[in-house]
Design a binder for these strands. Structure first.
Lengths: 358, 358
DNA sequence: CTGTTAGCGCGTTCAC
DNA sequence: GTGAACGCGCTAACAG
């Protein structure tokens, strides 16, 4: 029924071992026999049996890319970029040679699913795993992750973090690409302060994520440095946490406006949240940026098309994803110390302006 | 070094077969021995060897989800939804029982990569494959795809189309969930015509995709029915093709405005393109919708936040993706005839209005 | 309900 | 440069 390596060998009048050598291209084979074998492969429409080959070789060609929410372009862009470096362009024949199979796994932000996917990848003896986006800071989960990753690394799986800080235990088993979320958050709020804003609302992400914490810390640092967030300062009072989605931005902004109608700016944890914040501001009959400035984070493609265009912090998502892909393939050397911090660039656009006087 | 099933068997003082039965949960096993085995599994931190198990069972737990562009939420939403039905919620232990490994493969819209991924999935003996989004209409490629899919189906891989019309050959091997792109496109343009628009620009997608063709056909039907697109009518003249991205929307709209400054509306192939169109309209000093109405397609999450909110055609992407996932798992019966058409709903919002008189 | 016996299809030593 | 033989770790009959 299904054609095996032995069938190909028979047709090419060589031994199975020779066919294997041709297919894997690692051993010297005479050009003429190679020709014969390849012809037999094509004639028979032979496709390697992945499981069998993985079993014998004790490694597979699977590379897993874990994301929190694939419906969010933040992750889509990184994951897509990583795949471009891993999948290989194909040889145009659709025949598939030594390519890796780069696959994206959507955890939905759930710690359990994150671990489950890691186990599934471990089960498949994945060649590499790329973990993207913020990590969850629950100590139990972090310990479980560290243990699981150690086991994976131990089994020869390469581990790469992308847009994620390295584990506290900081095993040298991984290469980490971390975004400068703190610095970006800080510069963004500094920008607002320099514009003259003094009461600034902050719509943060879920409290247990590193991304949320770092961006918020940057914000608070900027406030503190400007003397706007001392004891009982506004920093805490004007901060509301919620998921990284539009609805959260909308509701949190209404909430903040209710608490403190005097704010002149709202900073959102990311661009999607910022869109919701914009909608809330408008629904209150306020104008952006004349009455209230709004800012986001990430600089997703749609942000420049918001009206007015969104002031935000640009993260080089595609470049980071691609680099993570190369690291996973071993095509690029890990950064010194295993960790590289990726700069975040402030993008000043129309959604922020000086506050109205009076 | 790595612990195997036999190690677990030894520790639990049972035969390897029994361990296998417990793990796969398909055979009756006494509760007490099951307990013992599970304890041994936990003690030893045992993880099943996927390749070995796939080899022996001649099937794997891999399910592939092919998308054209994972950075586009259109695909992200469908793929994420499909994964929710496939991956299983995990048992909370991170231990991974009989779950499938749902993986997303990003073809980048390239026919070669599409075939390559299919081959890779075939090599892994995937349990199912879900193909999302519009198909490429090149006859050679379609034939190659049909052949490849037939082979996959033949090997026991379940095939599901999601948001994609069934193959011309229409083998009964697949279940297809097709969007009513033609009907949606038609109703959208009918809406504009009923508002009073007579000169309508159309920014289409890449010409070789089914999605592009069907949406455009709906548009042209509406024009024809209104007597606006006879011989040498505007339909053709005011249509420009381009990729499904923002930039294409921007440039094509400028192009159309140059050709025919008298248009009063622009219909875009999808929401992302529509955003670009909006930007172009504004950059020409025109207002939306007073001077020019703009409409999109898909109703992606950001569309309601455009200013003014985008009139578009809503596709139930999440529901369709989830259903495709269930079909791939065999959790749901295929629709009668193997194909179901999914309705598209017109969403009238602020970006369309009657044209200015005079 | 449980143990025993064979392979699944391929990579990899070894010889030649 | 090529062939022969073995075993990777597991599942699927078949007994009992």
């Amino acid at each position: 029924m299904t054609v095996t390596l032995a069938d190909v060998a028979a047709r090419a009048r060589v031994s199975p071992a020779t066919v294997s050598r041709v297919l894997n291209g690692n051993y010297p084979v005479a050009a003429s026999t190679r020709e014969r074998v390849l012809r037999a492969v094509d004639d028979l429409d032979y496709v390697l049996n992945g499981p069998a080959s993985s079993l014998a070789a004790a490694t597979s060609d699977l590379v897993g890319i874990l994301v929190n929410d694939i419906a969010d372009p933040f992750f889509g862009i990184m994951a897509g970029a990583a795949q471009t470096q891993i999948g290989g362009p194909g040889d145009g024949s659709g025949r598939a040679g030594g390519e890796k199979l780069a696959v994206i796994c959507n955890t939905g932000g759930s710690p359990e699913r994150e671990l489950t996917y890691l186990t599934l990848l471990q089960r498949q003896r994945a060649a590499a795993v790329v973990l993207t986006g913020g990590a969850i800071e629950d100590p139990d989960h972090q310990a479980a992750m560290a243990a699981k990753l150690a086991k994976l690394a131990d089994a020869g799986t390469r581990i790469v973090f992308c847009g994620r800080p390295p584990l506290p235990e900081g095993d040298a088993l991984v290469a980490a690409l971390a975004f400068d979320n703190r610095g970006g958050g800080r510069r963004l709020t500094e920008h607002l302060i320099s514009l003259g804003h003094r009461r600034i609302g902050y719509v943060a992400g879920p409290p247990e994520r590193t991304t949320t914490r770092h961006r918020l810390e940057g914000h608070r640092e900027a406030l503190r440095d400007a003397g706007l967030d001392g004891e009982g300062g506004d920093g805490e009072r004007l901060t509301v946490h919620g998921p990284y989605d539009r609805r959260s931005g909308y509701e949190a902004t209404l909430d903040i406006l209710r608490r403190e109608p005097g704010i002149t700016a709202v900073v959102a944890a990311n661009d999607t949240v910022a869109l919701g914040a914009c909608a809330a501001v408008r629904d209150q009959g306020l104008r952006i940026p004349q009455d209230i400035s709004v800012a986001g984070f990430d600089d997703l493609p749609f942000s420049v098309d918001a009206v007015p265009a969104l002031t935000t912090v640009r993260l080089p998502l595609f470049e980071a994803g691609a680099r993570a892909g190369r690291l996973a393939m071993g095509k690029e050397n890990p950064p010194p110390g295993g960790i590289a911090t990726i700069a975040a660039e402030l993008m000043i656009r129309g959604s922020t302006a000086p506050p109205r006087v009076g």
